[in-house]
């Protein structure tokens, strides 16, 4: 029986995989891909809850999340491009200007 828990577990799995990607990728764009997966998982969660509790709010929330995610990706990639122009690299290991 595919209940709410199945979807939630699925979302949790995708979230963890996305987190793994964020933690291990060296390329900045790769990290952003991981973030995408995490946000996706969140969306699945929201829609599942909305469906199983009969509440519209979750769906609205999902729409907004998608829109905001798009904006975030755009700006993030713009930053990556700007960094690339100056540093000629997008290796996350080399971007450590905030080092203490």
């Amino acid at each position: 029986m595919i209940g709410l828990s199945s979807y939630l577990v699925l979302a949790a799995l995708v979230f963890s995989i996305g987190l793994f990607g964020v933690l291990t990728r060296r390329n900045a764009v790769g990290i952003l891909l991981g973030i995408e997966l995490m946000l996706n998982a969140v969306n699945i969660n929201l829609v599942a809850f909305a469906r199983f509790h009969g509440d519209l709010t979750g769906l609205i929330f999902t729409l907004f999340t998608i829109a905001i995610t798009v904006v975030e990706v755009a700006v993030g990639l713009a930053i990556v491009i700007a960094i690339f122009r100056v540093w000629r690299t997008v290796d996350a290991d080399r971007l450590d200007l905030l080092r203490g």
């Binding site: 900045a28 764009v29 995408e36 798009v70 990639l77 990556v80 491009i81 690339f84």
Partner: peptide, 12 residues
């Protein structure tokens, strides 16, 4: 999103 990312990869 996929389109944007592809462009970004190409540029970097």
């Amino acid at each position: 999103v996929v389109t944007i990312v592809v462009f970004a990869i190409m540029l970097t």
